[in-house]
Structures are given as C-alpha cells and as structure tokens.
Amino acid sequence: MKRIALTIVATFLMSMVFAQNAKMPDNITLKTLDGRTVESSVIQNDGKPIIVSFWATWCKPCNRELNTIKEVYEDWQAETGVKLVAISIDDARSASRVKPHVDGNGWEYEVYIDQNQDFKRAMNVVNVPHTFIINGKGEIVWQHTSFVEGSEEELIELVKKVAKGEEI
C-alpha cells in the first residue's frame, strides 16, 4: 500500500522534473486601453517570439525600460519579428492614466491593463519591471526582474535565439 502511494508520489515528482516550460496562461481577463474586456489568449504573434513586460505608470525603471526599447523597437521587429506586450498593473488610482501615459510617451506597444492583478499573480510577478520572453509555442522560456540600461541588449540577443528556435 505504502509502496503504491510512494510510486504515485514519485511519478508526480518525476513529471515535475521532466516538466518543461510552462505555457503563458491564456484565460486571464485583461482590459484594453479603450475599455474592452479580453482574455490573455489575445497575446499572439503568429509563431514569433513575444516580450511580455509588466510595468506601472509610477515605476521609473519600467518607464526607462519601455522608453529604451522604444528607440530600437523597429529594428528589433524587422530583425526578429518580435512583439512587445506591456501589461500595466496600475490600480484604480492610476489606471485611467495608462492610455495618456502610453500615448504621451509615444509607445507603439500592445498594452493591456491588469487592474485586478490576476495576470500578475498567474505569472508570479513580485516586483515590477518583470519581463518575460514567450516563444512561438506560447511557452515562457525566460524571465527577468529589474531593468538597467544595457539590459535591452541582453534581451534582444535572447530573442534572436528564440526566433531561430534555439534553446536559451
């Protein structure tokens, strides 16, 4: 009896050991900048890599990250086909400022608002900024918290590998 229980537990543990990259959840409710309700399954890029960046209007390093990438975003897109999706965790205090903030900064990213922070919890984000690379199969292949100037160059090197289907 005990042995059977052990076998089951061991199998379960093995399955965890062999478990590969988790998929990005596709059933989390988000809001678009024009107030529509959508599911996180809208985050798609035709099999090409996606950068998912959690940020907030009040977070300086987040703004530095998104502003820094803005300057090279066109080149990145041309080279790798990558798409950046920015997830705002602003709550009711600042959520209505997200669209003005995005436009005012001239960001051309796809932006969603995660006001109830369901997506933040589902993706295990503790602090912002927190950046993920999602491969063409929708799997989370890399994540990083914090931003300093220069990190964007590491990020694109990784995206290039992911775009080629290489392991990182």
Binding site: C59, P61, N124, N127, W142, S146, V148
Partner: peptide, 27 residues
C-alpha cells in the same frame, strides 16, 4: 544580485518608510 527572476538584496543603514526605486525595481 539578480539572476533571471531571482533577486538577492542586502542593505545596511537607516531607511525611511516609503517607495524605494534602486537597482532597477521599485518597492
């Protein structure tokens, strides 16, 4: 020290209550 999604921070001194943004994150 930050390695991917793991972050270790050690501080010494006096800190005022509030939001602190250093080392690329805010808390």
């Amino acid at each position: 020290y930050t390695q991917k999604a793991t972050r270790l921070q050690l501080g010494y001194g006096k800190q005022r209550e509030g939001i602190i943004c250093i080392g690329g994150v805010c808390r």
